[in-house]
């Protein structure tokens, strides 16, 4: 074989491999179907309203429900614990007085999610219904999304979790990033997210999830009637979690 033949063969192989790769990618992409993806863009856009004024001091119903429902990893070490939703106490200075508030923090399911933008494998993506979700089977664990998220809402499974209360949901294995899914599996079957359900059961009624594109929905009504705020709005990420009383 002379050099010319060798070059031809090498070129041919490279071409064949790369075209094969893209054909494969096309097949995988077209075969992909998460129920939320099938919703025509614009019909449903899930959003959340949190009425902090009603949130009960010391209550952890939503946190516990989330952990149980989604088998969220808990190791008892604040370096590795995963919190899809967490409650913080924050101090705000108004004049000379300082006021303390309990605030629930979770993934904001941004309309322009920086985490999805930076994901090198499109494992984090926004569904047509606006939920930002991680594909656990695709994530390579680079943690670039955690760097990009301005809300510290993303967590990494630093170690395997033994916690597996809800066997209908996957057990959490180490090596992938994750965040609140807004209980997409529940919303897809017409149920409310676990945190919302638990909160309603306590009678507090802090959390509301609904369709932001429907002006008659409870969340749209609340946003229209009450003064609401979103976190770090100036960043332009368009978060879909609205706070009352922040």
């Amino acid at each position: 074989m002379d050099r010319r033949d060798f070059m031809k063969m090498t070129g041919g192989t490279i071409l064949a491999v790369s075209s094969g790769t893209y054909a494969f990618q096309f097949l995988v992409a077209s075969g992909r179907s998460v129920s939320g993806d099938n919703i025509a863009a614009g019909t449903v856009r899930w959003g959340m309203v949190i009425d902090l004024n009603k949130c009960i001091e010391g209550c952890t119903a939503c946190l516990d429900a989330c952990r149980t429902e989604n088998n969220v990893a808990f190791h008892g070490d604040n370096r590795w614990d995963v919190h899809w939703i967490r409650k913080v106490k924050a101090e705000q200075k108004i004049g000379t007085e300082s006021k303390e508030k309990s605030i629930l923090l979770l993934c904001n399911h941004c309309d322009k999610p920086p985490c999805a933008q930076v994901c090198p494998v499109q494992a984090t993506y926004k569904r047509n219904d606006g939920i930002v979700i991680v594909d656990h089977h695709r994530c390579i664990g680079c943690r670039y999304c955690m760097i990009a998220c301005p809300y510290n809402a993303r967590y990494f499974n630093m170690k395997d979790s033994e916690h597996w209360q809800n066997e209908e949901r996957p057990k959490r294995s180490h090596g992938v990033a994750e965040a609140c899914t807004l209980c997409a599996h529940r919303l897809d079957t017409g149920r409310q997210p676990a945190c919302v359900e638990a909160c309603n059961n306590t009678g507090a009624g802090v959390l509301f999830v609904g369709n932001l594109n429907d002006s008659d929905s409870e969340v749209s009504q609340l946003i229209a009637d009450r003064p609401t705020k979103r976190l770090r709005e100036e960043l332009g990420t368009e978060p879909k979690v609205h706070y009352i009383g922040l």
Binding site: N78, R79, D81, H83, R86, K87, V88, K89, A90, E91, Q92, K93, E100, K101, I103, L105, P150, Y151, N152, L231, R232, L246
Partner: peptide, 13 residues
Amino acid sequence: ILTGMHITQSAIQ
């Protein structure tokens, strides 16, 4: 994360 506020208690660092 919370503009103008100071977080005093949290489950993470």
